[in-house]
Simulated scan of single mutants.
Amino acid sequence: MTAGHTLSTEDLRLAYDSREVISGLSLEIPPGRITMIVGPNACGKSTLLRGLARLLAPSAGVVRLDGESIHGLPPKEVAATLGILPQSPVAPAGITVTDLVSRGRYPHQGWFRRWTEEDEEAVAEALRATDVAELAARDVDELSGGQRQRVWIAMALAQRTDLLLLDEPTTYLDITHQIEVLDLLTDLNRTHGTTIVVVLHDLNLACRYADHLVAMRGGEVRAEGPPAEVVTEETVSEVFGLRCALTPDPVSGTPLIVPVGRHHCDEAQVPKSI
């Protein structure tokens, strides 16, 4: 893997029927870095990710992969370069864990290319990395929500793409597995230079793991950059409509958001920082 692939949008507009969700958005994903996209519900995070992955055609503007319109590239070429884990994916009935994870290797299979040792190693490594190797023979529909989510992440890892997009990959996971998944993505980035884009609800975890943070509201990017520069009391209030105090994360030193509820602190007592 290399960090040489680029992904960007220019004046991108995305809509469902006549309802526009993304409005003229221009964004460059930093190659070889971890980008976290945050924002309130229905702000367009998942829609943007679908547009970046070519799952949703733009009504205007363009998504560019390596400088070329992603919609003008062969689907298999895109799939071999860019992997996507959408929100709430659905597995075929009766499929086993191994079979589902093995589907991550399909973009690397030519018309006459058979299953290889490299494919076998990629699947085995993905199963181990996501701690689902012991589930390999189980049917996916028999698993818990958290187990299924880790299997889907394993399939995305088995694809071994240089660009990896994930929509809420920590959904259904307990806190231990949330941290393990984010650590795993960080390992992938640091070891292989994989460019990773993640939609995440947990703002504190996004600050801790992101190199680049994109804050969205109303289908627009309101702020982007390193978490320490993006996350301020003013930005959190503007983007999330939330009063908060900030303090350095004692583990990472990144901004730690402490929400202020109306039952816990009077207006006059809200500190600017802790």
Rank of each mutant, 00 (worst) to 15 (best):
T130K: 04
L157C: 10
V62S: 15
T171P: 07
L163V: 15
I153P: 02
A91E: 11
P75A: 02
Q149W: 02
F112C: 06
D162L: 00
S102Y: 02
R50V: 04
A158S: 02
L143V: 03
Q87R: 03
A133V: 04
L100M: 13
R114P: 06
D167S: 12
A42H: 01
I153W: 04
A133K: 12
V101E: 00
M155A: 05
P75L: 10
P107C: 05
E77W: 04
P74S: 13
A137I: 12
E121M: 03
A122C: 14
D119R: 14
D99L: 00
D99C: 09
S69L: 04
A60K: 01
R138E: 02
T116Q: 15
L65Q: 13
V90K: 03
G83L: 02
E125A: 14
E168D: 15
R138Y: 14
V63N: 01
A129Y: 02
G94T: 00
L85D: 05
T116L: 12
T47D: 04
P75Q: 08
Y172P: 09
L82W: 00
G44P: 07
Q159V: 09
A136V: 11
W111M: 13
A42D: 15
P169V: 10
P86H: 12
T171R: 07
T161E: 00
T130F: 08
S144Q: 01
A122H: 11
A60G: 15
N41A: 08
S69G: 14
E134Y: 15
A93W: 05
G61M: 12
A93V: 11
S88M: 12
V90D: 05
V123F: 08
V90A: 07
V151N: 02
G83K: 01
V101C: 00
